[in-house]
Computed example of a mutant assay.
Amino acid sequence: MRLTPQQRHHNETKIRAAMDRLLRGDLPPGGKCDIKTLARESGIDRTAFYGNRPYVHLREEFENRLTAIRQTGERPDPRDAQIARLKKEITTLKERLIHRNETITELTDIKTEVLSRLAAQHEEIIRLRRRADQAADVHRLPVRAPVIEPRN
């Protein structure tokens, strides 16, 4: 069945309206910014956009506009923008993770060194106490009981 000029004009109007919506980023659920979605949104059979069919020029126009939009850095498909944003976020998180791991390693090394020093100081205190206990000329001072102040 051949299309009348009015039907063809009506279909082209529907296709252009759907094209504008898709290129603005107004995508239907489960749709992308592509010919398949354009055909579905305009209610035209997808095969009409290929070969020597009547709407090849509209497919080419759609693809050219889509390419021009992408070259400016915009993304009509919000999922493309979301994927780009998530990739950037993953890169940032990986860098933060590397930095955190380096910090944890440094802090673990410091902790080990501090514990070694504390153990060495404890051993030194014990050694000095033994020596003081064995020495005859060292007198211990009496230990006072702590003073407890009354509460108001």
Rank of each mutant, 00 (worst) to 15 (best):
D109C: 07
R151S: 15
L58D: 01
R140Q: 13
R85T: 07
T92I: 10
I69L: 09
A84V: 07
R53V: 00
K14I: 05
I104C: 06
R2S: 15
E113W: 02
S42E: 01
E12M: 08
T91H: 14
L97I: 08
L118N: 08
I126W: 05
Q7C: 06
K32D: 12
F62I: 08
P146C: 10
L23A: 07
N52S: 15
R70C: 03
I44V: 15
A119H: 14
D109H: 09
P142I: 10
P78D: 02
T108W: 00
A120F: 09
N52R: 15
I90E: 04
I15R: 04
A68V: 06
R129V: 12
D109K: 11
S116E: 03
Q71S: 11
L97V: 08
R24Y: 10
H122A: 13
L97K: 15
R16Q: 13
A120S: 15
A17Q: 14
R8K: 13
T37D: 00
I90L: 11
G31N: 00
H139A: 12
P142S: 12
R8D: 04
R2M: 11
A120G: 06
A17H: 13
E74N: 11
A132S: 02
I83Y: 00
Y55H: 02
L86Y: 08
V147K: 15
I69M: 06
N52Y: 05
E74I: 06
N64S: 15
A68Y: 05
L118V: 10
L118I: 09
I83Q: 01
V143I: 15
M1R: 13
E123V: 07
R16N: 13
K32S: 12
E60A: 12
P28G: 08
E41F: 01
E102F: 05
I90W: 04
A119I: 06
R151G: 06
E74A: 14
L22K: 01
R75F: 09
D77R: 02
R151V: 15
R127T: 14
V147F: 14
A136M: 07
E102Y: 04
P150D: 02
A84M: 04
A135V: 01
D77E: 07
